[in-house]
């Protein structure tokens, strides 16, 4: 089995009206329930607004704290799921469902875990 990050990217500051968001949230809950039922969910959640992020850098002597997201841009990581599935095709199938539900671009990345290399087959 391999763990994958399924990351959702969403435009900043755009919150769909409740009549749109409601059904999406409903389907996301079903999605998560299905992931759990398939024993594939490691962890998943939505994030608060990217503007509320805090960035820390070590400048050689001190840790400097700044307000705002690390990457400037109009879209940010809005939430993610970590899933544990046999291979990329399985991960893409789950991610595809998420893309369809949210209408957002979804990025899939495998975790660099050497365990999977032994167990796969």
């Amino acid at each position: 089995m391999t763990q994958y990050l399924i990351a959702m990217y969403q435009p900043d500051g755009i919150v769909p009206p409740p009549e749109v968001l409601g059904p999406i949230m409903q389907r996301l809950e079903e999605f998560n329930a299905d992931l759990e039922a398939a024993d594939a969910l490691v962890f998943g959640n939505g994030l608060t607004d990217a503007a509320l992020a805090t960035v820390l850098r070590h400048n050689g002597t001190d840790v400097v704290v700044t307000d705002g997201p690390y990457v400037e841009g109009k879209e940010h990581l809005g939430g993610f799921e970590i899933i544990d599935v046999p291979d990329l095709d399985a991960a893409l199938a789950w991610a595809g469902r998420l893309a369809e539900i949210t209408g957002l671009p979804i990025e899939v990345r495998a975790f660099a875990d050497v365990r999977g290399a032994v167990e796969r087959g």
């Binding site: 391999t2 095709d89 495998a110």
Partner: peptide, 15 residues
Amino acid sequence: IRDSRIPYRVPSGGE
């Protein structure tokens, strides 16, 4: 293929 574990298989059914 190696690191993302693209599976060596023939897709079946609807795929």
